[in-house]
């Protein structure tokens, strides 16, 4: 049952790491990480704070673009090039195909994010010569990886029924909404003075909308004054939330894809 998934995932990684557009985005991200210390010196704020914020921002933005570009074309390309027909004529179920493609995308993301994080650590160490701050710094890319895995699942889900262009805007839009507005809806839901109707609406949005903001943990890392309470427990909770949300999206994607005429 899992062998076809692993084979499809491995093939997807092989394809992804050869896609020029992804490599160019990755290269740009790495270049920005390398020049970031130079840019940080231009800021009036604490050099370390700016450097950490800038580097984490570069990794997050680059990873998000890679996650979307990598996944929006995944299923449509297989259909357009007819590779899917040869695969589905073998004893491969559609859910195995979809899950294999997803895990391949996540593995490719992991490789690319690992590369960027390595550059981040190396550049940071070269600039600061302070190895003690590195373990804390790495927490953010780890959480970004869960965030990007969730984003990839959103894009894979949409790719089962919309075109790549529409998917690009849908996934990107959801990512921005889930990153920027999820905390707002959460506050709205929990606030005492919020009217009941608005609370219900906020709860509905909070339930449906993937909460990408959960993984934006850069503030406590950039500003040592801020802290996450029960840090380990928080990381575990948001990771479980992410995994469950991803599972839900893959199940929904399979239901749609199973009925789709390819």
């Amino acid at each position: 049952m899992f062998r076809p998934i692993a084979s499809i995932a491995a093939t997807t990684v092989g394809e992804a790491i050869r896609r020029k557009v992804l490599l160019i985005i990755l290269l740009i991200g790495v270049l920005f990480l390398v020049v970031a210390p130079g840019l940080g010196m231009l800021s009036a704020r604490s050099e370390t704070t700016v450097l950490r914020g800038m580097m984490l921002g570069i990794i997050q933005l680059t990873s998000a673009v890679i996650a979307i570009v990598l996944t929006v074309y995944m299923i449509p390309n297989e259909i357009e090039r007819r590779t899917i027909y040869t695969i589905l004529s073998k004893p491969v179920q559609r859910w195995q195909f979809l899950v294999g493609k997803y895990f391949g995308a996540v593995a490719a993301l992991l490789m690319m994010m690992t590369l960027m994080t390595s550059v981040l650590v190396f550049t940071f160490w070269l600039q600061q010569r302070d190895a003690s701050a590195i373990p804390d710094l790495i927490k953010a890319p780890v959480m970004y990886f869960v965030q990007m895995s969730l984003l990839a699942a959103v894009a894979i889900f949409f790719s089962t029924f919309v075109s790549p262009l529409v998917n690009f805007f849908l996934s990107g839009g959801l990512y921005l909404l889930g990153s920027l507005f999820a905390p707002f809806f959460q506050t709205l839901q929990e606030s005492q003075g919020t009217p009941q109707a608005a609370k219900i609406f906020a709860q509905l949005v909070n339930t449906i909308l993937p909460n990408f903001a959960n993984y934006n943990i850069q503030n406590p890392i950039i500003n040592p004054g801020q802290q996450i309470q029960n840090e380990s427990s928080y990381y575990l909770q948001v990771t479980i939330y992410g995994v469950l949300y991803i599972a839900g999206l893959l199940v929904a994607g399979t239901i749609v894809f199973d009925r789709r005429e390819v």
């Binding site: 394809e15 007819r82 040869t86 004529s89």
Partner: peptide, 11 residues
């Protein structure tokens, strides 16, 4: 069974 599609594309 097996299938070879029209103008096949392989990885």
């Amino acid at each position: 069974i097996s299938y070879v599609p029209e103008r096949p594309y392989y990885y």
